[in-house]
């Protein structure tokens, strides 16, 4: 199974009413590799992430994530995917610790894992304050902890470094960076940083695939063209 691709999409499409949010996405991501998705707002980046996260069912094509076919075996994928979305996906009136413990219980994990992550991201001093009192940067750190809590082999990151100062970004690097050893799918608006971080790049425009290839063969001008 180690050699099997982590993500295999063939002609995946998703429609909202008559409008196609995503059309004919065909990508293969090997296990352990990083895919970066570029595209203007509304190009289908989030839709693609949500399909991979089993939150949306594809309307066309076949999708397989971590060797399991979607949507037929989506329950087998759940619990193996970590999603860091725009929203923190945290309960604002609970503290960071309570939030993480709650998710640990949902994933049938012990509470040590939550403590360990709080410590690694230096959140312990604020761990018992309601997350609504945290700054955007701190909140993002808690969100990262939540996303990697169950040590998922596949990470879906929606602009993970927004709102983070360089020090904080460095702090979470071992969790969501390349050295975490996870397969990663990242959305980004930053051509230089995005290309540097990934092995594969996918460009979306109006829901269609406009660019695909190894990052070594793609220059930033091609990515910038997507936004024009």
């Amino acid at each position: 199974m180690a050699d099997a691709p982590a993500i295999e999409l063939t002609g995946v499409g998703r429609r909202y009413g008559e409008r196609w949010a995503l059309r004919d996405a065909t990508v293969t991501v090997p296990a352990g590799a990083t895919l970066v998705i570029f595209g203007p707002n509304g190009a289908g980046k989030s839709t693609l992430l949500r399909v991979l996260a089993t939150l949306l069912r594809p309307h066309t094509g076949t999708a397989s994530v971590l060797g399991e076919e979607l949507p037929r075996r989506e329950w087998a994928v759940r619990g193996k995917v970590g999603l860091l979305a725009h929203d923190a996906l945290l309960y604002r009136d609970l503290s960071a610790r309570e939030n993480l413990r709650f998710h640990a219980r949902l994933h049938k994990l012990g509470e040590e894992r939550a403590e360990q992550l709080l410590e690694a991201t230096r959140l312990l001093p604020r761990a018992d304050d309601p997350v609504r009192t945290l700054s955007r940067g701190l909140l993002q750190r808690v969100a990262v902890c939540r996303a990697v809590l169950h040590d998922p082999p596949l990470l879906l990151l929606d602009e993970p470094r927004a709102n983070l100062d360089p020090a904080a970004a460095e702090l979470i690097e071992p969790l969501i960076g390349r050295e975490s050893g996870r397969t990663r799918v990242i959305t980004s608006h930053d051509p230089v940083g995005g290309l540097a971080e990934a092995d594969l790049a996918l460009g979306l425009r109006n829901g269609s695939q406009a660019l695909l290839g190894p990052t070594s063969e793609i220059d930033t001008a091609a990515v910038e063209a997507l936004y024009r």
Binding site: A53, T54, L55, W75, R78, G79, V81, L83, A85, D87, A88, L89, L90, Y91, R92, H103, L106, H107, K108, R146
Partner: peptide, 12 residues
């Protein structure tokens, strides 16, 4: 409001 739906739905 917090998007917690998604986090719960992704849990096994």
């Amino acid at each position: 409001e917090e998007g917690g739906f998604d986090a719960v739905l992704m849990a096994p």
